[in-house]
Structures are given as structure tokens and as C-alpha cells.
């Protein structure tokens, strides 16, 4: 077993154990834990292990490790912390909450993504605390028409059972299902009509996640329909079917497309790295002398390439004017390709 695998395994076990302990503590020694939801709990624990393991493996790749380190360094750099915090709030709102970068890429894609994203976020915020026994509701002893919410066993706010607030909260998963279903429809439509998407998509990577989300949403809605309008018709079967779809989705989280949920925040670190790069010295191309990137980025990239086993070092530094191919800008690299091919022909003619 390699060092990286061992380290990732330890992280996986540690985070999973912490969550298991939090479930026990948060549900007051499982007093508020619903045994009927044990399948969901174990699927979540497996997903947490898988996600942590993969995340730890990913963070150990040379380029990711370097960005991770540099991202935090530039964020906490003395004199820039306040400015960075302001930018962080702006980017979290604009790029993450509103998905502005996806809007700029493609409106249809944005519509699908923001519906799915918010549907899943709402569903996760409701489901996980309930499954773990972190939140439960009790009727007030003095008035049975009122509920009180308990968080980690501590009493919270109370509200009338027949209020609009209660209706909205207790149907939270229904609203989430509406959002996800609409988003999945839009995404599927794009995947069926767009030639570019059709050429590149893979079943496991692109279609299976949509199918799973659709299955979770529809079986969840069927449960609501069963107890609301059909006097609980086929409720037990539907409950098992819904559990199966949710557990499958949880087990699939560490693999395939869903993992981008956990990778995507790296975009924030990159944005701070770019901000810092703009303020620092710029690297100039050894051929055309134009600035083309921050010197920090070029130095970091050379280190990453060395760690990955690439050898772009140039031995004949005196003759060629550069000790590393990384010191030549992309435009000049393209020109050099043409010059090298042209030389092959002119040398031949001589």
C-alpha cells in the first residue's frame, strides 16, 4: 500500500468516525435517532468515507497540493485578509450561490444547474439532520396544536402545526423535488438535443447522476402523494423504493460527476492565487520579452512539472537563452513549432 493511499485511508476513517460520534452525541445517545432510517445513515457514512478518501488522494496530486497550499497562503497574506474576505463573500454569492459563471457559459445549462443545485442543497439541509437525529419535533405539553423544534436535543423555536410556516417546512422535500425534477428535465433536454453534448457525454459520468436525481425526486413525491391523497396506498413499498434510490445516490457520491460538488470550491483558491499573481512580478517570455503570466505561477508550474516527472529543462541554456521551456510564452511556442518544421525542410534543401 502506498503512502498516499494509507494517508487517504486514515483521513477517511477519521472523518467517518467523527461523523458517527456526532450522530451519537447529537441524537442524545440515539434517543432521537429513527431506527427506520438506519439504511440512510450507513449509506451516508460510506459516502463520507469515500468522499474523504478521494478528496485526500486528490489533494496529494502535485498540482492540487500546490494550489491548496498557495490558495491558503495568499488568502491569509498579511495586509490582504480583509480585502480577501470581501472578495470571498462576493464570489461565494455571485459564482456559487447564483452560478454566474455558468450563466455566462450557457443560459439553458445555468437554468438546469441552479434548479438542481438549490433543490439538492435544500434536500440535504433537511434530510441529513433529520436522519442523524440532530433535529426532531415535539408537541408542546400545554398545547398539542403547537410543535417545538429541538436541535441536538436543545429546545428551539415553536410554531403552530397548521400555520403556513409549518406547511412550508414540513413539505420542504416536496419543494426540493420540484426544483430537482425541473432541473433534470432541462438537463436531459439539452443532452438529447445538443450534438456537442451528445458526442462527449458518458452514461456513468453524465446521465446516471441525472437518472438517480430524478428517481429520488419522483419516488419522494410518490410518498407524499400516497399519504396525502391516497390514504397511504403502497406506502411501505414506496418507502423502500425511495430509500433504495437515495442510498444508491449516496453510494455514487464519491464517484463520477457528483464529486465536482467537493472539487468546485478549489475555484475560490485559484481566484485568490490569480489576484496575488497580478500584484506580483510578471514573467517575461525569453523569446519575445512580453509578459505572459505571474512569475509565481511559472515557478510553481516548473516545480509541479518536475514532481510529475516532466523534464522541460533546457541544457543548452547559453545558446538558447532559456533554462526551461516553461519560460517561453504559449504564442512563441506555437511559432517555434512552425520554425522547427520549416527548418527540417530548409536543412533538407541544403
Amino acid at each position: 500500500m502506498g503512502k498516499e493511499v494509507f494517508r487517504a485511508g486514515v483521513w477517511g476513517v477519521a472523518v467517518t468516525t467523527i461523523l458517527a460520534l456526532l450522530i451519537v452525541i447529537g441524537s442524545r445517545n440515539l434517543a432521537h435517532f429513527d431506527a427506520a432510517l438506519v439504511g440512510y445513515t450507513f449509506a451516508t457514512l460510506f459516502a463520507v468515507f469515500g468522499i474523504t478518501y478521494r478528496y485526500a488522494m486528490w489533494l496529494q496530486r502535485p498540482p492540487t497540493a500546490l494550489y491548496w497550499r498557495r490558495g491558503w497562503q495568499v488568502f491569509f497574506r498579511r495586509g490582504f485578509l480583509l480585502r480577501n474576505l470581501g472578495a470571498w463573500v462576493g464570489r461565494l454569492t455571485g459564482e456559487f450561490a447564483l452560478n454566474r459563471f455558468i450563466f455566462r457559459r450557457d443560459r439553458a445549462r445555468w437554468g438546469a444547474h441552479i434548479l438542481i443545485m438549490w433543490g439538492c442543497l435544500i434536500a440535504a439541509a433537511i434530510t441529513f439532520p433529520l436522519v442523524f437525529g440532530w433535529i426532531h419535533f415535539e408537541t408542546l405539553p400545554e398545547d398539542h396544536t403547537w410543535y417545538r423544534a429541538y436541535l441536538f436535543g436543545f429546545p428551539g423555536f415553536a410554531f403552530p402545526i397548521d400555520s403556513l410556516f409549518a406547511f412550508l417546512v414540513f413539505h420542504g422535500l416536496v419543494w426540493a423535488s420540484f426544483l430537482v425534477t425541473a432541473g433534470v428535465m432541462l438537463a436531459m433536454r439539452r443532452r438529447m438535443r445538443d450534438h456537442g453534448a451528445a458526442a462527449l457525454q458518458q452514461f456513468g459520468e453524465d446521465l446516471l447522476p441525472l437518472i438517480l436525481l430524478f428517481a429520488v425526486s419522483v419516488t419522494g413525491l410518490m410518498l407524499s402523494a400516497s399519504y396525502t391523497w391516497m390514504k397511504g396506498y403502497a406506502y411501505d413499498f414506496l418507502a423502500i423504493l425511495h430509500a433504495a434510490t437515495v442510498i444508491l445516490t449516496l453510494l455514487w457520491l464519491p464517484f463520477g460527476k457528483f464529486f465536482h460538488i467537493f472539487q468546485r470550491p478549489a475555484q475560490l483558491g485559484v481566484s485568490f492565487y490569480k489576484d496575488a499573481g497580478e500584484r506580483l512580478e510578471q514573467a517575461r517570455c525569453r523569446r519575445c520579452n512580453d509578459p505572459f503570466a505571474s512569475q509565481m505561477h511559472i515557478d510553481d508550474l516548473m516545480e509541479v512539472e518536475r514532481k510529475l516527472g516532466f523534464q522541460y529543462e533546457i541544457d543548452d541554456r547559453a545558446a538558447l537563452g532559456a533554462d526551461h521551456y516553461q519560460r517561453i510564452c504559449p504564442r512563441c511556442r506555437r511559432a517555434l513549432l512552425g520554425l522547427a518544421q520549416g527548418s527540417a525542410w530548409t536543412n533538407e534543401e541544403r
Partner: peptide
């Protein structure tokens, strides 16, 4: 594409740093 009759087995791109355009 390179000349058929030449001995070129690979293109040394970096060494074209000071080559003149055709």
C-alpha cells in the same frame, strides 16, 4: 510532415529559438 529523405526522427522545437522564418 517532414522530408521523406531526411534523417529527422523528431522535431527539436526548443532549438528553433533563433531560427529565421521561411
Amino acid at each position: 510532415m517532414v522530408p521523406r529523405t531526411g534523417r529527422v526522427e523528431y522535431l527539436d522545437v526548443a532549438s528553433a529559438m533563433h531560427s529565421e522564418p521561411i
